[in-house]
Design a protein around this nucleic acid. Sequence first.
RNA 1: GGGGGUGUAGCUCAAUUGGUUAGAGCGCUGCCCUGUCACGGCAGAGGUUACGGGUUCGAGCCCCGCCACUCCCGCCA
Length: 600
Amino acid sequence: MKRTHHCNELRPAHAGQTVILDGWVHSRRDLGGLLFIDLRDREGRTQTMCDPTVLPAEMFDRASRLHSESVVRITGRVRVRPEGTTNTRIATGEIEVIVDHLEVLNDAAVLPFSIDDPEIANKVNEELRLQYRYLDLRRPEMAKNLRTRSKVAIAIRSFMDGEGFLEVETPTLFKSTPEGAREFLVPNRREPGTFYALPQSPQQFKQILMVSGVERYFQLARCYRDEDLRADRQPEFTQVDIEMSFIDREDIYALIEGLLKTVWKTALGMDIPAPFKRISFYEALNRWGIDKPDTRFGMELVDFTEEFRTSSFKVFSGAVGAGGVVKAINAKGLAGATQGQIETMTEYAKSFGAKGLAFIKVENGEWKSPIVKFFTPAEKEALTAKLAIQEGDLILFAADQWLTACEILGKIRLYCAEVLKGQGKLTIDPMRFDFLWVVDFPLLSYDKEMNRWYSSHHPFTAPVAEDIPLLKEDPKRVRGQHYDIVVNGVELGGGSIRIHQPDVQKTIFEEILAIPPDETRLRFGYMLEAFRFGAPPHGGIALGFDRLIAILCGTTSIRDVIAFPKTAKGTCLMTDSPGPAAPRQLRDLHIEVKAAPAKA
RNA sequence: GGGGGUGUAGCUCAAUUGGUUAGAGCGCUGCCCUGUCACGGCAGAGGUUACGGGUUCGAGCCCCGCCACUCCCGCCA
């Protein structure tokens, strides 16, 4: 006999029925003569009761010795709980099952950490959770994250299908394209010294699919990057990869806004307003000091370049004289910042090349600052007015070239927000989502050390049409048809309209990026070749699927939404990978290992 | 590659800042308990203080090294 119901199903209406439930022993409360077992499966919990006058003695005895997380099958009769004993905290709390037969399907050993109490389980060391991931995933929070991930993946597929997209799988054995992220290499047994590479993204294949006439492609694509990890970066991750033909940027915006509306509705039952706000890269840097601004709180950057152009404070007037700017933010209520916090912020400033960080603490009606003695009344007035300075504020300055000054204050703004959150002076509604498009990125950036231009995003990004004449005369002013989708300060994805004319692509590769022609041919020859045979105008986008799910689940670590994630060193604590290879495997692959693994 | 944090019982944390036998809650084991749902009560077991050195009369605590986990910078076209 198989189970008749799951553990989140029985209600008072089922009273009197005999049911079979399968599940894990979530908790056991032994009152001596009476024994309660909360049975849990992935749907929920049901209280079962062992009564010695109903349950045969040997089964009762067995039940009293069950460890947590043992797997059992219970047969019993549903009844409404006696007056005053309902549990309003679980959905099945009005009923209980009187056990008349107990079958132990599998005993569980004593657990390395308890998973029945969320308060305790949430604090368990992540190392231990990853080692026993199968136990960690039994926790309702984690199970809920997995479910959200599945629901959203299916909603995305369904939405894209409705929009006429084909899901096409692209190879994960690709070739090395040594620009961009470091790649994982896969040795080729058939030809010594040659390698596949795992793709950083299906970028080139999806563009080829446009040449193939697919017109609308998407894929939940696994991607690989052999770079150092972060809370929001894993060596293998999933992206929602999209490409369309015969479209412009507006089509992408509309598609993604529709997709995200569907996703938010599916996962959170929320209606998010669209269209999303659009800001330029310049505005993002200028107002928030970052190209993925979190606009859920203020503390925007304010410009004082003109006010301090002729200031007697040489650090400021000197920066302006050198073509730079003076900018400031007001960290409201942070005048009580500790020496350590000021130091952390100063370190940020220094990491961008600043000599220090100027600040003003407004305490007891007084401006406490090493630099305030240089300020004229007019300068002070301007600060007070434009920054709305009040008692308890902390004003922080950056005087440098525009980009540097913006980036410094952008970092400090985020740091201040974290400190203020910790002090309870800044609260953000966890159900608030500020979506925005960041557009008009520069197509090219300059590498001073290498003395050459490189693509801000990737070399297939099309320039804004009216800027094409500038490509050769003033590359830095060329805007790319690139767009990023940002939510709450998280870069959710990015994409662009691509170059579809082989001559423009060739110009970018060889004249702008200065890649030698033979290298271009070696690395991208097949693309340029494909583009000769009727490449439609096309563009696309990729969304970080793990980050998307993390945002929906209210966590900042994508490890919480990936079933089996890697540690910061790229290892799997459960399977102990990566590990050594057998000599025979290495021989087959024509590989000789020079440095032996540190551990035996 | 660099910087910060953490590591004490199965788990979560203490240990008066270098001083007697390293404690508590939960879990575990045993006994008691017929309305619990964080059940309750009594008793008990459980420690190479991550690891290796050093300083000291004496180290969980200080110093050096090392390992693991974690956060950040670099990196992530």
